[in-house]
């Protein structure tokens, strides 16, 4: 970088010359991402300001300009769609709070188990990754099978344990979100375990040895050594989970279908139907921008929440 051999042009010229090659190298990737990501973001915003529907989509740039009407329709809690949208935001938040925290707790517990040497550890570590590796459509289809009322495993076991008298309907109505949560936690904790295990292994052993000498209990060691040491890992892990959670689509689409019903509708499934079944592309775009805004807001709130605690601890 910036090394100049004798007898070459001045630094800035040389740097630009070398940069030209760099720009050429990234050009294909830039074009690709421009057309699939950056471009659509801008067009998406333009679409959200127009009445783009099944009739006007062919010539969307000349679709009637409606200003913020699409946003009003998507947001108005009194309207049919707005009410549904707010509900879907609540659903995905509730879903996220439960699945993210439980996946984290289970992941943390399993990471501690896997951090100990034992017979067959390599094999167990490999097997534990299976839920994470399995394609979403396969995993959630299997869970859909497991949650069937009459032929499913869940009802069979609940009946056997005497917890229920009659088979429960899991995938329709108010219980459906819990079925999806169960499946999502099953699929989600291995990644948490993996990341936390890597975090655990980077904590110096001497810290624990010193704590044992000082007579610290197991809980104290966890509370005052493990948790603070894992704080940076936890922060990114939870933040990524929150961001992904707002985009949740696969688990709901595969387990509950195109319309998961009021109790389990999430923004992505709602927007999908609004855009590709009702063909209200304008309203769909407006709602997806609102979704992005919520994602950003949560990111900021979360980062703020963590800031003062760090200052108190006085990290190096």
């Amino acid at each position: 970088m910036g090394q100049i051999a004798p007898g070459t042009p001045p630094k800035i010229v040389r740097r630009l010359q070398r940069s030209r090659i760099a720009y050429l190298l990234i050009l294909p990737a830039v074009v690709c991402m421009l057309l699939v990501h950056y471009g659509p973001m801008i067009w998406g915003f333009m679409i959200s300001l127009r009445d783009v529907n099944v009739f006007t989509v062919r010539d969307w740039m000349n679709a009637p300009w409606v200003g913020l009407a699409n946003y009003a329709e998507g947001f108005d809690p009194a309207g049919r769609l707005g009410a549904r949208f707010w509900r879907s935001l609540w659903n995905v938040t509730y879903f996220g709070i439960v699945t993210i925290s439980l996946s984290y707790i289970i992941g943390m517990a399993v990471a501690h188990v896997l951090n100990r040497p034992f017979f067959g550890r390599t094999l167990v570590r490999g097997l534990v990754l299976l839920p994470y590796v399995t394609p979403d459509s396969v995993a959630y289809s299997v869970w859909r099978f497991i949650f069937q009322a009459r032929i499913g495993l869940v009802n069979k076991w609940l009946l056997a344990l005497g917890l229920i008298e009659e088979p429960l309907i899991w995938l329709v109505g108010s219980r459906s979100i819990y079925a999806v949560m169960t499946a999502a936690i099953w699929k989600g904790w291995p990644f948490n375990a993996l990341v936390l295990l890597a975090g655990l292994q980077s904590i110096p052993k001497e810290l624990y040895e010193a704590a044992v000498v000082d007579g610290a209990s197991g809980w104290a060691r966890f509370r005052y050594i493990t948790l603070p040491s894992l704080a940076p890992v936890t922060r990114t892990l939870i933040l990524m989970s929150i961001l992904w959670n707002f985009n949740a689509f696969n688990q709901f689409h595969v387990m509950l279908g195109r319309d998961p019903g009021l109790h389990a509708d999430v923004p992505s499934t709602l927007i999908m139907r609004e855009a590709f079944q009702s063909f209200n592309f304008g309203v769909g775009s407006a709602m997806s921008f609102a979704l992005m805004a919520f994602t950003l807001v949560f990111t900021i709130i979360y980062l703020r929440m963590l800031q003062p605690r760090e200052d108190r601890r006085g990290r190096k």
Partner: peptide
């Protein structure tokens, strides 16, 4: 900025790109 912008696209909801992308294909 390039690396940051590449990385940040991963954090945005897929549905945000899907609608305009579909409209672009149709167009």
């Amino acid at each position: 900025p390039y690396v940051v912008s590449v990385f940040s696209t991963q954090m945005l909801p897929g549905i945000l790109f899907l609608i305009p992308y579909f409209v672009l294909f149709t167009w």
